[in-house]
Nucleic acid binder design. Structure first.
Length: 556
DNA sequence: GGAGAAATAT
DNA sequence: TATATTTCTC
C-alpha cells in the first residue's frame, strides 16, 4: 500500500479516520457500536458473518486498521475463526458473556483485548492504541500493510526514531504536536517491550493510576524551585538527566560530586493541566528501550539518558545521602551545634551543589528522630564524648547509671553511626540501630577503625571499649564488687575509699534524668559536650565531693 | 517564607 | 521497613 503525502495529511487528526472492522452478529448491537465509533470519526465497516469479514480483509487489507469482533454464540466459529485468521490486525474481542475462560481464550488466540459488552464510548474511544501498538511492536517486515501508514504517520508526527535510529536512542518530540493525544487520555503506555501494549480504559487503570500519582502539579524539582538556595554556586550535582536541567551545564566529570541523586524521576505531567503526557511516555519508552544506557549508574533508577533532548518542566530528584554527604551534614550540624542547626544554615555550611533546603530539612528531621530514638541512652553520649575516650572507664567510676538502673548494657559494641565518619566505607549503613547512643564525634577523638579485641567487628564503627560482660555499670550497693573492663580485658577496681562517698543513686539519677530529658538544651554542666573536668566540677558543685580518681587503663 | 512535624511516596 | 519527599501548620 502506497502511502501518500495526502494520506499523511489526513492522519494529522489521528486517530480520526481509523478504519474499524466490526464483526457483530446482532444488527442492533452492531448499529449501536457503529454509531459510537462513527461519532469518534472512526470509519466503520460492519459485518455479521466472519467469513465475509475475512474475505474483506483479505481482498482489501488496507481498509482495516483494527477489528472489533463479537464472540458470537450464534456463529459456529464464535468469532474465533476470524481471530485466528486475521492476526495481522489488532482484534478486540467482545461478548456479553464475561466468562473468564472465553476471555482467556480470546487473548490466547491473539486478541489484543477483551471488552465486555456493552461497549461504552470510553471503551471504544481508545481502541486506536492497539493500532499504534501493533504498528510499533511489529517488525517492519511483518507489519500489516494497513498499519504501516499509521506507524509512519506517528513517526513523523512524534518525531520518533525510525527503526534504524532507535538504537541511537535519540528521541525528539514535539510536545505541542504530541499534546493532541491528550484528548484521547493516553498515548503509549509503558510496558514490557519497546512499545508496550496499550489498553482501553478498561485495562488502563494501572497506567492511569501511575499517571495520576505522579501528576502532582508541584515544582518538586527542588533544583529549580529552590535554585536560590544554592548560593549561586556552580551546579555540580550529578543528575541523571543533566541536559534536562538547564541549570546543569557542567560536564559529567564536573557534575560529579559527593552528592548523588539516586533517582531523578521525570514528573508525569497532567494532561488536564494542558501538559502533554506524550513526552512522558516518550521518555518512558526511551528508558525501556535502552536499559543499558540508563542503568549505567547503580544509583540511578528509571531515568532518562543524557541524550534526551526534551526538557520536562518538572522532575524529582532523590538525594542519596551517602556516607560522605552525611558526613558533611553532621559536620555542619556539629559546627552549628545541634541547637542552632537549622536547614538553611546547614545547607550554607555544607555547600553541596544541588542540595536543597528541603533535602537538608528532611535529613535533619531524620537525624533528630534518630536522636530521640536513642534518647534513653543519650547519657552514654556524654561519656563517649569525653576527651581521651575514658567513658567506659570513667562511667562506672562516676556511677552514672543507665537511665534504667537495672538495664543491662548492650553486649554488642556501642556503634553509634549517626555521626561523622572519616573512613566510613561507601554503602555502609550510616544509621545506627535504635537504642544505640548517638555519637557526635569531634576530630580529636574520632576513631573509625577496628582494633583487635575491641569488639569492633565492622568497619566504620567507632571503637569503644567493651562494657563489663556480666553486669550493668555498678553504681549501687554492688558497686564495690564490680569491676569494669576495658576492651583489652583490663579491669578496674573501684577504690573503696571513693565508693564510700559515692553519691546516692537518687541524686545521680536526678542529674542524669534532667540531662537526658532535655537533650536539646545545654547539658546541666553548661558544656556541649561536657568535658570530664566539667562533669566532675558539676558533680562537685552538687555536693558530690568525693569522686573516684580518674582511672587510666590498666589501673587495677 | 522558613522550620518542623506529619503524611505520603518510594 | 527505611528513607526521601511532600504537605501542612505554625
Amino acid at each position: 500500500m502506497v502511502f501518500t503525502a495526502n494520506d499523511l495529511q489526513e492522519w494529522k487528526d489521528f486517530p480520526k479516520g481509523l478504519k474499524v472492522l466490526l464483526l457483530e452478529g446482532d444488527s442492533i448491537s452492531a448499529a449501536e457500536i457503529r454509531a459510537k465509533l462513527e461519532a469518534m470519526d472512526y470509519n466503520v465497516s460492519t459485518f455479521c458473518d466472519e467469513n465475509e469479514a475475512l474475505s474483506a480483509i483479505s481482498s482489501t487489507p488496507q481498509n482495516f486498521h483494527i477489528a472489533i469482533v463479537e464472540v458470537s454464540s450464534s456463529s459456529s466459529q464464535g468469532g474465533f475463526k476470524f481471530l485466528e485468521n486475521a492476526k495481522d490486525l489488532p482484534i478486540i474481542m467482545t461478548s456479553n458473556n464475561h466468562c473468564l475462560n472465553i476471555m482467556m481464550k480470546c487473548i490466547a488466540l491473539g486478541a489484543v483485548e477483551f471488552l465486555s459488552k456493552p461497549l461504552s464510548e470510553d471503551k471504544l474511544r481508545n481502541i486506536w492504541q492497539h493500532v499504534v501498538h501493533k504498528a510499533f511492536s511489529s517488525g517492519t517486515s511483518i507489519l500489516c500493510e494497513s498499519l504501516k501508514p499509521v506507524k509512519e504517520s506517528l513517526v513523523t508526527m512524534l518525531q520518533l526514531p525510525t527503526d534504524n535510529e532507535q538504537d541511537e536512542n535519540k528521541v525528539s518530540i514535539d510536545i505541542d504536536e504530541a499534546a493532541r493525544f491528550t484528548d484521547y487520555d493516553h498515548v503509549l503506555s509503558p510496558g514490557n517491550d519497546k512499545y508496550p501494549a496499550p489498553s482501553t480504559p478498561q485495562l488502563m487503570h494501572g497506567t492511569r493510576l501511575l499517571d495520576d500519582g505522579d501528576c502532582q502539579d508541584q515544582t518538586n524539582c527542588s533544583t529549580e524551585k529552590e535554585s536560590g538556595e544554592h548560593d549561586g554556586e556552580s551546579k555540580s550535582v550529578e543528575t541523571t538527566c543533566g541536559n534536562l536541567n538547564a541549570e546543569t551545564e557542567s560536564t559529567p566529570q564536573e557534575r560529579k560530586s559527593d552528592m548523588t541523586l539516586a533517582r531523578e524521576e521525570v514528573d508525569l505531567v497532567d494532561a488536564s493541566k494542558g501538559e502533554s503526557i506524550a513526552s512522558l511516555h516518550t521518555q518512558k519508552r526511551k528508558v525501556l528501550s535502552n536499559p543499558d544506557k540508563n542503568t549505567k549508574s547503580a544509583n540511578i533508577v528509571g531515568v532518562v539518558s543524557d541524550s534526551c533532548e526534551i526538557k520536562p518542566r518538572r522532575k524529582k530528584m532523590k538525594v542519596d545521602w551517602t556516607p560522605e554527604l552525611h558526613k558533611k551534614f553532621v559536620k555542619a550540624v556539629e559546627q552549628l551545634s545541634i541547637d542552632q542547626a537549622i536547614p538553611s544554615r546547614i545547607l550554607e555550611i555544607m555547600k553541596v551543589e544541588g542540595l536543597t533546603r528541603h533535602n537538608v530539612a528532611s535529613h535533619l528531621q531524620k537525624y533528630r528522630m534518630h536522636r530521640r530514638q536513642i534518647f534513653p541512652k543519650e547519657e552514654d553520649r556524654k561519656w563517649l564524648n569525653q576527651r581521651e575516650r575514658i567513658y567506659c572507664v570513667q562511667r562506672p567510676i562516676m556511677a552514672f547509671p543507665p537511665y534504667h538502673s537495672n538495664q543491662t548494657l548492650p553486649m554488642a559494641p556501642i556503634y553509634p553511626m549517626w555521626g561523622q565518619s572519616s573512613t566510613q566505607t561507601a554503602g555502609m549503613h550510616i544509621w545506627s540501630s535504635p537504642g544505640y547512643p548517638l555519637w557526635q564525634p569531634t576530630a580529636e577523638h574520632w576513631h573509625w577503625k577496628p582494633i583487635p579485641g575491641m569488639h569492633a567487628d565492622a568497619w566504620g564503627c567507632p571503637v569503644l571499649p567493651v562494657p563489663p560482660p556480666q553486669a550493668p555499670f555498678p553504681y549501687t550497693k554492688n558497686m564495690p564488687a564490680l569491676l569494669n573492663a576495658d576492651a583489652t580485658g583490663q579491669t578496674f577496681t573501684m577504690p573503696q575509699s571513693s565508693l564510700e562517698h559515692y553519691p546516692a543513686e537518687e541524686v545521680v539519677d536526678k542529674v542524669v534524668k534532667e540531662a537526658v530529658s532535655k537533650p536539646w538544651l545545654p547539658l546541666p554542666l553548661g558544656l556541649k559536650p561536657p568535658s570530664t573536668d566539667s562533669v566532675l566540677a558539676e558533680l562537685s558543685r552538687q555536693g558530690i565531693c568525693s569522686i573516684p580518681p580518674r582511672s587510666s587503663k590498666g589501673s587495677n
